[in-house]
Amino acid sequence: MAVSQQQASSRDRRTGFVLGVALWLFTLATLWLFGANLHKMPPPASDFAPQIDAILWVILGISVIGFVGLHLYLGWVALSRPAEVRAIYLPADRPKEWLWVLVPIGLLLVADLTFDHMSNKVWGAFFGKPPANAFEVEVTGQQFAWHVRYPGADGRFGRTNPRLISDENPIGLDLSDPAARDDILLINVMHVPEGRPVMIYLRSRDVLHSFFLPPMRIKMDCVPGYTTRMWFTPQRKGNYEIACAELCGMGHYNMKGLLVVEDEQAVQNWLAQQTPFSKRGQ
């Protein structure tokens, strides 16, 4: 190389210094970025939300340890001056020295299994046996709106058939089914009671959508041909936005609904005011 050994090594020291400082600054900046802004998460509003958040915090804690640990080390490597003329020689592959790697990795494995176990509990509850006394709603996604259906007074959803879908009958409700007569069909608005499990059946009439409730920390895809479902117990009254999280076309960014969590009584009163779909336009 054209530059002398000495020049090169002093240049290396300078670059190393800058790199070390930069790595430590990045670490601080990242920690600050997360620390100062986590409160901007939508406040938890369902029974699942605190549980999922707890897992988030556990993983975040592990991540901070790993992230800070490695960056402290990398920064130290960059900042420390190599004193010797030569690097120390560690002949490749002495399994005893592998312990330096394998012990931290073992700890990581333990941590992995811990939060996987936590996660499985929540997952099991979410997909397990649905609660018996649930308040049932059905949501059908279309480009770009949510059709919300309540079973009406009889508590049963009427049959639907995709072949009956038209502009007048947006979810293909089969009115020959008696259970369908009192079904209430609304668009982009959904009222659910606080403190009672809410079971939402999810369907789609065209493409994939994903029913996303940020404050409840859950989402589930609406798959045409399937009926997927999700349930949660709202824990805080208020108006929340329903978002679509799966790319569903041009208007995806604007496929918004309103979720109102209120008293059971208020929900019933509100439902009583709605006209069933079969009587609409009469």
Binding site: I52, I55, I59, L60, S63, S119, F126, P214, K219
Partner: peptide, 12 residues
Amino acid sequence: GLFLGTASTDLY
């Protein structure tokens, strides 16, 4: 990736 690989946090 740990956040996303964990099924229940991935729900969010």
